[in-house]
């Protein structure tokens, strides 16, 4: 069953297409990464899928409903959202903020303890939001977005401006959430993050999807078919795969010259540059 289905979606602001003709679907239980540089249309798509924007053309369904219906209370119970400008109440403690969200989602009191443990903030629950570090703030906002254990979670650049330790906390939490059945739609310009978390990714550039598939598939598709060999004397050879290379490797092996041998695999960042001719900024 597809949790999200986007068919030929176009979004135009004035004379500029933020999204040109975007189609993809996301099955239940997947972590799907939407990759692209700033201004490529990632946030626009999240806004369309959460009924904050209408499409100019095309159709989008979320949880088997037209995306435009997502503003209804019953639908909003089913998804959670965290964007890079989500906010919480500065003068309230983490616990008071969560208490508000608990009541808005009509959840039992135990949901606060559960979600605080999940984001590793149980010890800081009495701290005001205004005194928290950037990483703790982001985790507290994530806690509010997932307190109701949504079927679908939208994350727009969830770890932007976070240090690696805090980002790792978030990744761990997201994987756990996904294992419990939450489908995750993640936008990021961080290729390493996408590789680490996502089952599939789509690469968005200037409003169009340039490639879609699992990171492994994309790497296989875009690898340059070369083998990288490091010899014991320090020499490095990059050779095309084939009979001639196999003979040379066999020869080096017989003589015990090989220190390290690997296929040369592109990163998602390399693939992006290859497809668009543009750096991912």
């Amino acid at each position: 069953m597809d949790v999200i289905k986007v068919t030929h979606v176009q979004k135009r602001f004035g004379s500029k297409d933020a999204l040109a003709d975007v189609s993809f679907s996301i099955p239940k239980g997947e972590i799907f990464g939407f990759l692209g540089p700033s201004g490529s249309g990632k946030t626009t798509l999240i806004k369309i899928l959460t009924a904050q924007l209408n499409t100019t053309n095309g159709q989008a369904t979320v949880l088997n409903q037209p995306a435009g219906m997502m503003h209804h209370s019953a639908q909003k119970m089913r998804f959670g959202i965290l964007t890079d400008n989500s906010g919480l109440y500065e003068r309230l403690t983490i616990e008071e903020n969560l208490e508000l969200y608990r009541q808005l989602y009509d959840l039992p009191k135990a949901s606060i303890d559960r979600v605080l443990q999940f984001v590793n903030l149980s010890g800081e629950r009495k701290k005001r939001f205004s005194v928290l570090s950037k990483g703790m703030r982001q985790r507290a906002i994530l806690a509010c977005a997932i307190i109701h254990e949504p079927e679908l979670l939208f994350l727009d650049e969830p770890t932007s401006a976070l240090d690696p330790v805090n980002a790792a906390h978030i990744y761990k939490g997201l994987r756990y959430l996904n294992e419990k059945g939450t489908t995750i739609f993640l936008t990021t310009h961080n290729m390493a993050e996408a590789e680490l978390l996502c089952h599939r990714v789509a690469i968005l550039y200037q409003g169009s999807i340039k490639a879609i598939g699992s990171p492994k598939e994309l790497k296989r598709q875009y690898r340059d078919n070369q083998v990288r060999i490091e010899l014991t004397n320090g020499e490095i050879h990059e050779l095309p795969q084939g009979e001639e290379t196999a003979d040379r490797i066999a020869d080096w092996m017989k003589r015990g010259f090989i220190d390290r041998i690997e296929t040369k695999e592109p990163s998602l960042g390399d693939i992006f540059i290859k497809m668009t001719g543009s750096e991912l900024l």
Partner: peptide, 14 residues
């Protein structure tokens, strides 16, 4: 200003 209104709009509160 603090984006809390938009966050609240995304909850089931009508």
């Amino acid at each position: 200003e603090r984006n809390t209104l938009r966050s609240m709009m995304m909850t089931p509160a009508s």
